Computed example of a mutant assay.
Amino acid sequence: MTNDLDALLTALYVQIDDEIGDTRWLGRPPRLTDSELVCLAVATSAAVAEDDEVGPAGRAK
């Protein structure tokens, strides 16, 4: 599963980064780009979905 998730996150990052491109901001630059933030959200969701003992919002079933 790890290789599949790595490939998914890499492809997702590249696709989002190509679509969004450079974003502009006011003030201090963000610590994460939009592409990195979306990939982190997908990875977190995939990790929670893999765990059979955890239900929605991290509550035990």
Rank of each mutant, 00 (worst) to 15 (best):
A47F: 03
A41R: 11
A47T: 07
A60W: 06
D6L: 10
T44I: 06
V48I: 09
L9S: 04
D22W: 05
L26V: 12
V42E: 06
G55I: 06
E50N: 05
T23Y: 11
Q15T: 15
G27T: 14
L32V: 01
E53V: 04
Y13S: 08
P56R: 14
D34N: 12
A49N: 07
L40I: 07
M1E: 06
T33E: 02
R24N: 13
L5E: 11
Q15C: 08
L26M: 10
A43F: 03
D52T: 09
D34V: 15
A43R: 10
V38N: 05
P30V: 15
G21V: 08
P56Y: 11
A49Y: 08
D51G: 01
V48M: 10
D51H: 06
S35P: 02
D6F: 03
L40K: 09
L26N: 10
T2I: 09
L32D: 02
A57P: 00
S35I: 03
T10L: 01
A60S: 11
Y13G: 08
L8Y: 04
V48D: 08
Q15H: 14
A11Q: 09
I16S: 03
M1S: 10
I20A: 15
A46T: 03
R28K: 14
T10A: 05
L26Q: 12
D52N: 04
G58A: 11
L32K: 05
I20T: 14
A41V: 10
D6Y: 02
V42Q: 12
S35W: 02
M1C: 04
I16M: 05
T23E: 12
E50G: 04
T33R: 02
L32F: 08
A47G: 04
D52R: 09
T23L: 13
T10N: 02
V42G: 08
C39I: 04
P29Y: 12
V48Q: 10
E53H: 06
L40Y: 04
A60L: 13
C39L: 08
P30G: 07
E36F: 00
G58I: 14
D34G: 01
L12K: 07
D4T: 03
E36G: 00
Q15I: 09
T44R: 13
L8V: 13
P56F: 09
A49V: 05
D52S: 07
L12D: 03
M1D: 06
A46I: 05
E50Y: 04
V14W: 02
D17C: 04
P30F: 14
V14L: 09
P30D: 12
D52V: 09
R59P: 00
P30S: 13
V54S: 04
D17S: 10
Q15P: 00
L26R: 13
A47P: 00
Q15K: 15
L37T: 07
L37N: 06
A7V: 04
P56H: 08
R59A: 15
C39P: 00
E53R: 14
W25P: 00
L5S: 03
L9Y: 03
Y13I: 01
V48K: 09
C39A: 15
L32A: 07
D18P: 00
P29I: 10
D18A: 06
L37C: 07
T23V: 14
E53D: 11
T2W: 02
T23K: 12
E19Q: 11
A46C: 06
A46Y: 03
D6V: 02
S35F: 01
G21S: 09
T44D: 14
D6N: 11
A46G: 01
A49R: 09
Q15D: 12
D6G: 01
D51V: 05
S35N: 04
D22N: 09
E36T: 02
Y13V: 02
W25Y: 15
